[in-house]
Design a protein around this nucleic acid. Structure first.
Lengths: 229, 229
DNA sequence: CCAAAAGTGTTCGCGGTACACCCATGC
DNA sequence: GCATGGGTGTACCGCGAACACTTTTGG
């Protein structure tokens, strides 16, 4: 294999689909490209992988550099290796998806990004490269995974109401859920801790706030329990 | 970003975890390396991605070259990008997993492989690089996916008995299944076509052979049906 | 007192699970 | 005729689904 060293090599990038939950839809974070190719087009945050960093590190670095986002749930999605993805040359991209709490992040454009903004999933602009396909795949993954793992909580603040939680699932799964059944199910898992706080600043009855009990979840998981919407 | 062209680049490889179903366990196809590093160690079939082929193409090419296996179900698994995966230099590997019908393939070593062989999952030799981790991840994926998609059939010949099918699930999921319930469930999905043939060469009552109705599965899927063990 | 959302139980039907015996065939 | 696996039905239980009214709070 050592002769392979001299062969031309594909360039390697990472791209991140960052999801954020808004009041009544899912948003995706996009950056407007400062440089060609696809100059001024909207694209996923991402960039070249350095030779001395892992893929996860590269994804976090690019996310921080281009959009100011840090401390998010991040998971590898898929690697895209079509021949014509990038007009310049052969580029293979390892895609990630991230779940962010919308309110947490003061986004700001930097380095290769002219602007940064959140876009509703069903109102995305035309995207650079094959990024539309990557977003597709990310949604699919999110929809699948939200049902059998508790990643949904990554989209909510640490304390949330049951109605917020229900809205989250309704938005991600794109179907209405029954309030009573939803509460019964979730509470019966015994993974939500009722706090002694309630919602603030609403002009109707304030809802109780809950926390997700991650410790307990991990313990139950080790015992064979399986989260299931 | 164009300045990135001059940065040193990671090398890009593909590695394949090929599963085959034997009478009472799952097997993985390994090759014995002809060249250093890890000379003579057992490893997953794989190799460098050419600049003019997609990742899927690279995986199939390496599989064919090193082991003689073609025409298998192949799916991308995960991309491994730790810094020290390969002692020579930075190598990022896109891992695939494949499902083969054991009987179909006359395996043969070639190119960089000294030997090729099937190993039982719970009797694997020490593997080169981080290939043990890759196999782990592949099993996890297989176990998960076999339950909600009909990929299991890729491990069986086109015509199979219900007992074979049940054994497949028992082996992959590592737990016994009830014969009557299993049959009831599978037949009620209405995705198996009863052929007019029976098993040959057994010294007891011969079992009926069935085929998986892929067309019907695709049709039902489009209508919202979801396979579920 | 009115608007708005929070919170709360019961019934029904389906699907998963447990379980044991007779049948067909080859030797 | 015997050994070996093939093939079959029923009863119970738990869970998901459907469904509407009362309570709390702020303005």
């Amino acid at each position: 294999m050592s002769h392979s060293y001299e062969y031309p090599r594909a360039a390697l990038t990472v791209d991140c689909v960052v999801f954020g939950l808004d009041v009544d839809d899912l948003k995706v974070l996009l950056i407007q490209r400062k440089l060609p190719p696809y100059q001024h087009a909207w694209a996923l945050p991402g960039g070249f992988v350095h030779v001395d960093e892992t893929l996860d590190e590269a994804a976090r670095r690019e996310l921080a550099e281009e959009s100011g986002i840090t401390d998010v749930y991040l998971e590898q999605l898929y690697t895209f290796g079509e021949l014509d993805r990038d007009p310049r040359e052969r580029v293979v991209s390892v895609a990630y998806y991230a779940l962010a709490k919308l309110s947490d992040h003061r986004i700001r454009a930097a380095t290769d990004a002219e602007r940064v903004a959140w876009f509703a999933l069903d109102g995305l602009p035309r995207l650079a490269f094959d990024h539309a396909r990557i977003v597709e795949k990310a949604i699919e993954r999110l929809r699948g995974k939200v049902r059998y793992t508790p990643i949904g909580f990554e989209l909510l603040p640490p304390r949330f109401t049951l109605t917020q939680l229900q809205r989250l699932y309704e938005i991600v799964l794109m179907r209405p859920l029954d309030k009573r059944n939803f509460r019964k199910k979730l509470l019966s898992m015994d993974l939500l801790i009722e706090t002694d706080e309630v919602e603030q600043g609403v002009r109707h009855r304030a809802a109780r706030l809950y926390r997700f009990d991650r410790k307990k979840y991990e313990k139950l998981t080790r015992q064979g329990f399986s989260f299931d919407l």
